[in-house]
Nucleic acid binder design. Structure first.
Lengths: 260, 260
DNA sequence: GGCGAGCTGG
DNA sequence: CCAGCTCGCC
C-alpha cells in the first residue's frame, strides 16, 4: 500500500505528468494540491481511464484539492464546516481540505495557506487557519480509524528542512509562530513519517521556479505526511521522488510517498 | 535589394521566428506590424546581434510598428502628426505608422486599423484613418525619393484576394467603402507590386487562427506592398513566403517580399 | 474561438 | 518563474 502527496500547481497543465507518474509508480492513493480548477472542469476521465477514482474540491484559479484512489473513497467530506459547523464556514471559501476513508484508514489532504509575507493579512489568515485545522483534526481523531494527514503544509518544521535557514525567523514558512502552530497540531498524536526513515537535512519537496532554485538545490521540505501512532509503526518507507521536478514544464513541488 | 512586410502579432513572442527568418532570407528591410510592445521593451539587441538596425514606434499590448534594416534609416518619423500637424494628433495615439529613408527610397510601414465589424465605431475610425493616410502619402509624394508603402492594410482589394468572396459587401476588410478609400489613395500614384507578377487569385498573406483556416487555406491577401511608378518598373519579383505560417506558434500573417 | 499582454498569486 | 484570469483584438 502506497500513498503519496503532490502539489501539482494546476492539474490541467500537469495532467500528463500526473497520469504518467501514477502509471509508473502505481500508488494506491494520490493526494493533489493546487489543482486550480472548478469541479466541472476537473479532468476526471483521464484518471478513470487508468483505473483511479477522484474525489475533488476545487475552485477557479487558486487552491483546490483532490484525492485520487484505486478504491473509491467513502465518507468524503470537503472543507472544515462539515466537521466543525458553520462557525468556520468562512475558511471553506478557499478549497483547501478534503478527506475520505479507505478501509480502516482516514486520509486527510490539505493545502495549507502560504502566508505571503510575515505579518501580512495572509500570514494572519494562515495562523488562524491552522487553529481551525487543530480543531478539525482533533474531531477526526475521535474516530476509530487510522489517520493519515498529508499535503502541502507551507511550513518547514526544522532548520534542516531548509537549504539555508539563515534569517528564517523573518521568513514565511519558517517562523516560530507557524512552527509552533503546527507542533500543537502534531501533539494531538501525529508524527512526520519522513523523519522515521531520514534523519539528516538536505531533503526537499519544493524548489522555487525563480533563480534556478532546483538546479542549485535551493529547496524546502514543506510537503509532509503525518500518521497516527499505530500507522506510524506500520510504515516501511517514506521518500521524496525528485524525478517529476526534472521534467519539462514541471510543478515546483515533487511527490512524497509513504509505503506500508 | 529585398524588402519585406510582416505582421508578427507580438515581436516578443515571435522573436525567434523573426530573427531565424531574417538569417535565412536575408532581406535588407523588414517592416513589422503589431509588435505589441513599448519601445523600452522592444528586443532591439536581438536584431543588432545579427547586423540589423531597428526604428520602432510601439505601445503596450496593441498595434506597434517597426522597420528593421541592414543600413540605418535616416529621416525617421513616427505617426501622422510630424507630416500633417497637430490636427491629426488623435490618430497617433495608436502606433500604426513609421517611415524612414534608405538611399533614394522612402519606406512607409503601416498597420491599418482592422475595423472590427461593418458600421461599428472601429469601422468608422478605419475609414477616417484612411482619409488621413491619403493626405499623409500625398505629402510624402512631393519628395524627390522613390516611395514604397507597405504593411497590413486589413483590406482585400479584389474578390480574388479572398478565399470566399460570398457576401463580402457586409464583411469588414472587403466592403466597397474600404476598397474605394484605398483606391483613392493608390490613385496618388502607387501600384500593388504583387499584381505585377501574379494575376490569379488564391494567394493569401493572412489566415485566421480559428477553424483551422490555414490548413484549409481559407485566407485573405491583406498585406500589401505599393510602389511609386519608376520603382514599380524596377521590381523583379514579389512573393508571399508561406513557410513561417507553418511553424509552431506562428503569427496569423506571413511575410510578403519584393525584390529589385 | 484562438491568441497575446498584463495582472495577481505563489 | 510560472499558473490562470480578464481584457481586447481579429
Amino acid at each position: 500500500m502506497k500513498i503519496a502527496t503532490w502539489n501539482v500547481n494546476s492539474i490541467r497543465t500537469r495532467l500528463p505528468h500526473t497520469t504518467d507518474w501514477l502509471k509508473t509508480t502505481s500508488v494506491d492513493v494520490l493526494c493533489l494540491q493546487e489543482t486550480k480548477v472548478v469541479d466541472e472542469k476537473f479532468p476526471r476521465d483521464a484518471f478513470t481511464e487508468i483505473g483511479y477514482h477522484a474525489a475533488i474540491f476545487g475552485q477557479p484559479s487558486y487552491n483546490g484539492v483532490a484525492i485520487i484512489s484505486r478504491e473509491p473513497l467513502s465518507d468524503v467530506s470537503r472543507g472544515f464546516a462539515p466537521i466543525l459547523g458553520d462557525r468556520v464556514a468562512e475558511f471553506d471559501q478557499q478549497k483547501r481540505v478534503i478527506t475520505g476513508i479507505i478501509g480502516d484508514l482516514r486520509v486527510v489532504n490539505l493545502y495549507v495557506p502560504n502566508g505571503s509575507a510575515v505579518g501580512s493579512e495572509k500570514y494572519i489568515y494562515k495562523l488562524r487557519w491552522l487553529e481551525v485545522l487543530h480543531d478539525y483534526l482533533k474531531a477526526l481523531m475521535l474516530e476509530p480509524n487510522h489517520l493519515l494527514v498529508c499535503g502541502d503544509f507551507n511550513i518547514a518544521l526544522e532548520d534542516i528542512d531548509i537549504h539555508d535557514p539563515t534569517g528564517r525567523v523573518n521568513q514565511v514558512m519558517a517562523t516560530d509562530l507557524e512552527r509552533v502552530a503546527l507542533q500543537v497540531i502534531l501533539r494531538l498524536g501525529l508524527a512526520d513519517v519522513f523523519r522515521k526513515f531520514v534523519k539528516d537535512g538536505g531533503h526537499f519537496s519544493w524548489w522555487d521556479y525563480r533563480s534556478a532554485a532546483f538546479r542549485r538545490d535551493l529547496g524546502w521540505r514543506i510537503d509532509h505526511i503525518y500518521l497516527s501512532p499505530d500507522l506510524y509503526e506500520k510504515a516501511i518507507a517514506c521518500a521524496i521522488d525528485k524525478a517529476p521536478r526534472k521534467l519539462e514544464q514541471p510543478s515546483d513541488h515533487t511527490p512524497v510517498i509513504v509505503e506500508f
